[in-house]
């Protein structure tokens, strides 16, 4: 029996919308955590996750069966996040490194065992959305460059250049806050 994402989505497109349940079970956790990386708001992340599946049904006719479902889904997820943040006026928190002088005493010392992990989370949260999504897709979602390029609708070369800038910024922020 063919249970691939693409086969299921093709069936959804043909009107068997109940098959979306399987895709929901496969991806809702990953999507929820994807949104959590942009906003620590659990309710918002939950709403955005559901909204992605709503849009999948709404735009099912635009799905092309030869395309990877996960790539298409993340294109929708990205647009969902951008629309919602624009609508709710959620913007990048431009809190600068200097304003984080109390960060170490307030947060990191309480989590000594997970200090590096907490620092990375913090560094990620200080990046702007565009650079942050590249790091999330590469490291957390383990997407290959070709897939990220499709989600962002840019060339692979452009993706590599942008990723390099994002990684440089992440390392720089991480180093700065670890010295605080």
């Amino acid at each position: 029996m063919n249970l691939s994402d693409e086969f299921m989505m093709q069936k959804v497109k043909e009107g068997e919308v109940e098959r979306l349940a399987l895709l929901f079970e496969r991806y809702h956790l990953e999507l929820y955590n994807f949104f959590l990386k942009f906003s620590r708001d659990k309710d918002l992340s939950s709403d955005l996750t559901q909204n992605v599946f709503y849009r999948i049904i709404k735009y099912k006719n635009s799905y092309k069966s030869h395309k990877k479902f996960r790539t298409w889904m993340y294109m929708i997820a990205r647009n969902t996040r951008i629309d919602a943040f624009k609508k709710n006026k959620i913007s990048f928190n431009s809190e600068n490194i200097e304003s984080l002088k109390n960060f170490k005493s307030d947060e990191v010392l309480e989590m000594e065992e997970q200090e590096s992990s907490a620092l990375l989370k913090k560094a990620l949260s200080l990046m702007n959305f565009e650079k942050r999504e590249l790091i999330i897709m590469s490291f957390y979602l383990e997407m290959p460059t070709s897939e990220i390029a499709k989600v962002l609708e840019i060339s692979e070369n452009n993706t590599r250049v942008r990723f390099h800038r994002a990684l440089t910024e992440l390392k720089s922020i991480y180093n700065k806050i670890s010295k605080l």
Partner: peptide, 29 residues
């Protein structure tokens, strides 16, 4: 960085997400 990202555990949403999804799905079905 890679290893640090792998130590992070996925957070689980509450039941309202699943409930909301299945309500929506039944309407569309």
């Amino acid at each position: 960085i890679w290893e640090l990202t792998k130590t992070e555990k996925l957070e689980t949403p509450d039941d309202s997400l699943r409930e909301g999804f299945y309500n929506m799905l039944s309407m569309h079905t």
